[in-house]
Design a protein around this nucleic acid. Sequence first.
DNA 1: ATGAAGCGTATTTAGGGGAG
DNA 2: CTCCCCTAAATACGCTTCAT
Length: 325
Amino acid sequence: MEFHQVRYFVTLAKCMNFTRAAEQCNITQPALTKSIQKLEYELGGALVFRERHLSQLTDLGKLMLPTLERTLLAVEEARTNAKKFKRKKVATLRVALTPMISASILMKPIAALTTQLPGLQVDLVDAESSNVFEGLLSGDVSAALGSSCIGPTPERIERFSLFGERVFVACAEGSQMAEESTVTLKDLRSAKWLEAIDCEIYRAFREHLCEGQVAQPGHRGQGLQHLQHLVSANLGVMLTPEHAPALPDAVVRPIADVDFKHTVELFVVGGRQYSPALDAFIKICRRFDWQTLLTKAQARIAPKAGPFTAMPRRQRDPEVVRITA
DNA sequence: ATGAAGCGTATTTAGGGGAG
DNA sequence: CTCCCCTAAATACGCTTCAT
C-alpha cells in the first residue's frame, strides 16, 4: 500500500466523485481510478460502489476509512515535525539531575545554549543515582549531571569533570546547630537526619565517613528542594553542596572534622552521534566559568556560614577526616 | 540499460435526462 | 419510445521517472 493511494482514497471518500477527487489530488481521473483499483486489489475488495451520482463507500471502504484517515494524519504530522526539526524549531534536549545537583547551576549554560539554538526546548528531569546511566543508555535522556561520588560508570558512559566543591550541612535558622559556626560528626549523629532518596552523595557520606552511624533516618526526600523545605521547617538537617541555593529560613554550616569534597560531572553516552543541541551543551558546560558561579554561591551563604575552611572549635575532634570523591 | 510504476491523453463504455 | 447529449468511470497506450 502506497501513501499516495491512501491520500487519493481519503480524498475520494470525502467528495465521492472520481473526477473532482482527481482534481483535488492534482492528477487526472484515470490516474485516480487506477490507484483506487490497485488499492482495492491489495485490500481484497471494492472500496467504492460506482453508481455515478450515487457512488458510495462499500462496507470495506467504510471500515478502512477511519484507519486510513489516521494514517494520513500521522504521516502529515510526521512530515511537519521533520520539517520543524530540520529548522531546529522544536529540538529537545533532555537533561537529568541526580538528587543533590541543583538545577540553578544550569541556568546560565541553558541561556547560552538557547542563544545559540533559538527554539531549543530543554527538559530538566530528576534522576535517581541508581538508574541515571540506564536513562542515558536507553536514550531517555541525552545528558546527566551528577556527583563523582557515583563511582565507576558503565563502559559506554563518557564523563566530564565540571567543577569541584565542598559539601556542607544545612540546618534551620535559630536551631541549636545554627548557633555554632561549624558542626561536627558528633553533632550530626545526634541530629534528626534528613536523607535524599537514592543519592550518591549521601551514600558516599554514610558509607565512607560515618560507617553507618550517622543514619538515624528521619524524613526523606527525592531531591534538594524537598529536603530544604524540611530543613526550613526545622524538621532535621541535611547535606547540601556548595552550589545549592539556600532557603531563607535555613543556614549552611561546614562540617568541622570532615573535609567532604566531590566533583560535579557531566555524563553522556560515548560513541553516539550527538545532536546539535547536545554537542553545543557539552561544549558550553566544559567551557563554562563554574568558579565564578561557585564564588557567588559562597558569597550568598558566607555571612551565615562563616569561613568555609574548618574552624577551630572549643571541643572539636582531634583529627580532620579528608575525603575527596 | 532495463523494467516497474505512476501519470497523461485519447478513447470507450455506461447511465441519466431532456427534446421531439 | 427513441435519439442525442452530457457526465462519470474505465480502458488503451505511450511517456517519464526512478530504482536496480
